[in-house]
């Protein structure tokens, strides 16, 4: 058959399309020349100058703080929302709650950004909080738009979780809150963790919403990068990009290895279970007591 070959050619082309730009970015971060497009020999000078760029570094630190805070908030709220959607069955207004939870997922960021800014301004007008725009407003905005992602991840994990496991815990005497913390949460922990990581990444990467709700005092990293790109391409950004790509790849690779190990462990366990079936002792029923056939 010829079709598979054609398919794999497109697949290879698609991956090339996805990865060549990133690869070039990494290569040119080691370029000695200031001109990004001309190879002037190998150098690590842009990494050194990046480390000296106080403005970028403080923006990065601010972004990391915001990302950690907002991801944590979004994980708590998103997990709650995911549970409501997956477990609380049909209650009045469920459809509305579902729509409300997933709407931020598809809302264009310019709209979310503008509407949040106008909310913050109105709130400040009304109750004097939040004062000005900065870390607080960015964090609140990020919690709002990332919690939908966490909710969707948690919901789909919960949907595939056998509900009778939670019922069993309740049947054995655990109150609902205890059931959640002792049974449900440990089981869905991987989904919650990946929800947190996704929220963290989205927050760290957000340009548009931050653009609206950040203030003059607090410029997060993406805004800093965005404005310096608009002024022109600088090799420092290449170096920064390389560091980010490196960190993410290392993280993903570690996660991949971990899940591969889990998979191997699971296979071993399955084998153990099959052998276990053979070890089963004969049951205790003495045949002489059985009724005559």
């Amino acid at each position: 058959m010829r079709r598979p070959n054609f398919l794999y050619m497109i697949l290879a082309l698609g991956f090339a399309f996805l990865y060549v730009p990133i690869l070039l970015l990494v290569i040119y971060s080691f370029n000695a020349s200031r001109l990004v497009t001309l190879w002037g020999g190998f150098s690590t000078q842009w990494y050194a100058s990046l480390l000296g760029n106080q403005q970028l570094l403080s923006a990065a630190w601010l972004s990391l703080q915001i990302a950690a805070l907002s991801a944590t908030g979004a994980t708590v709220l998103g997990t709650m929302a995911g549970m409501v959607m997956a477990r609380f069955g049909r209650f009045r207004g469920r459809a509305i709650v579902g729509a409300l939870v997933t709407a931020p997922l598809v809302m264009p960021e310019v709209i979310t950004g503008l509407s949040l800014l106008l909310l913050f301004v109105s709130l400040e007008d009304l109750i004097g909080w939040p004062e000005g725009r900065g870390m607080t407003t960015i964090t609140l905005a990020h919690v709002t738009f990332t919690m939908a992602f966490v909710a969707v991840i948690v919901q789909s994990r919960m949907a595939s979780l056998d509900e009778s496991i939670e019922e069993a815990a309740m049947d054995l005497g655990a109150r609902p809150a205890k059931v959640f913390f002792v049974i449900t949460l440990p089981i869905i922990a991987p989904a919650v963790v990946s929800g947190w990581l996704l929220a963290f990444t989205l927050s760290l990467d957000d340009v548009v919403i931050s653009n609206f709700v950040s203030g003059p005092g607090a410029t997060p990293l993406p805004i800093e990068i965005f404005s310096s790109i608009r002024l022109g391409v600088t090799p420092e950004i290449n170096a920064l990009a390389t560091i980010i790509v490196g960190l993410v790849s290392a993280g993903i690779l570690a996660a991949g290895l971990w899940s591969a190990r889990q998979e191997r462990q699971r296979r071993r366990d399955e084998q153990l279970a099959r052998q276990g079936a053979g070890e089963l002792m004969p049951i205790s029923s003495p045949p002489q007591d059985a009724p005559p056939h």
């Binding site: 990133i22 391409v233 920064l240 790509v245 993903i252």
Partner: peptide, 13 residues
């Protein structure tokens, strides 16, 4: 998972 902004930036070069 890698920065959206940086991936757009890569195309400028």
């Amino acid at each position: 998972w890698t920065s959206f902004l940086i991936r757009v930036y890569a195309w400028i070069g």
